[in-house]
Design a protein around this nucleic acid. Sequence first.
DNA 1: AAACTTATGGAACAATCGTTCAGGTAGTTG
DNA 2: CAACTACCTGAACGATTGTTCCATAAGTTT
Lengths: 197, 197
Amino acid sequence: MEPRQVDGRKVDGRKARGEKKRRAIIEATLRVIERDGIAGVTHRSVAREAGVPTTAPTYYYATLDDLLIATLLWSAEVLCDDMLQIVASGGSAREIAKVIANAVDENRGRTLAEYELYLLAGRRPELKAAARRWLDLAVEAVRPADPVAFRAFLAAIDGLLIQGLIADVAPNEDELEPIVSFLIRGRDDFTAVPREE
Amino acid sequence: MEPRQVDGRKVDGRKARGEKKRRAIIEATLRVIERDGIAGVTHRSVAREAGVPTTAPTYYYATLDDLLIATLLWSAEVLCDDMLQIVASGGSAREIAKVIANAVDENRGRTLAEYELYLLAGRRPELKAAARRWLDLAVEAVRPADPVAFRAFLAAIDGLLIQGLIADVAPNEDELEPIVSFLIRGRDDFTAVPREE
DNA sequence: AAACTTATGGAACAATCGTTCAGGTAGTTG
DNA sequence: CAACTACCTGAACGATTGTTCCATAAGTTT
């Protein structure tokens, strides 16, 4: 059975293909950012990466800025997942340390891209909410009884990640684990308040 | 008495002027970064900001990249001062909170520039040492007995700053003070080891 | 199948970029 | 003051940029 709209018209296959290409362009843009940073994003570099004609990005996104913002808003969801994986995993200090170590080593490109988002949000107010979203989600997910200690923990996560990016050699989980352990000592404080249903 | 070289030759006034212009160009570049980010740095924009001819930046710095790196290395010293003011002030939590609040409000442009340095260092190894320098200096200045607690503190400083930059309204010192206070509780641990003379 | 709508892409444009270069200017030396 | 040197700059070039435009292809409806 073919997909149809409520009014009986067929779903326009042209639009469907368009949406796919739209996402392909955004994903290509993110890959470019991971590899070369925001500075490397041009219509042509994105088109080359996505394997589409030069004018395709322009066609789907009115301006290069729109493309960049769309990409970063989308990547913010990835950021959210990464960060919540760190914060709300409920795991041991070692598990958290492992996630951080991965973020600054294997996933280094993506982590760099995420902080490019942070920095751009500093200059583009419309990106602020997206960049900050994981912080809000973290608070909501954990519902810390001691918000002060939890905010300190969240700040330290950001600091460990960004400092890990500029280290000569990326820190491994063995180095990170004691620091994380120190940060979450008395973690019971975080989760003492159960979520109200 | 006019300045002379040891060999009796006069100091070349031409070179002296050149050095001044060199610094003027770097300072102009930093202002451009503070205002528009690294993306806004071009030979022409820098020249306009510095009030020098278009080709002057090219003349003094072989390539635009050299200019950028020279600027960021120089700004790293400012970063160092700022950070050490925070860390090694030996001040109260309130004083530290005040410095952070200033960095994300009044000095917002400069703080943004400093994190652009951080991020660029993530992609340019030759900048890493400069970006990391304040961390090394902080450790050396404080000589913490508990390096783990101190590194957590340093990471949290970075996190508070960068999160302050993407907040809807910049946090003030009243909000920051309890967090800082939490971070430096048991600060005696930091300074328990006196510097060996 | 004809009419119609939407998606698509190659050519081209103006603007801006980094950089080159030959000549001019200012300061120093003899 | 003439010769010399080092610093400096305006004009210009080739490359790349974002974006526009129109012809065409693809898909849908009548």
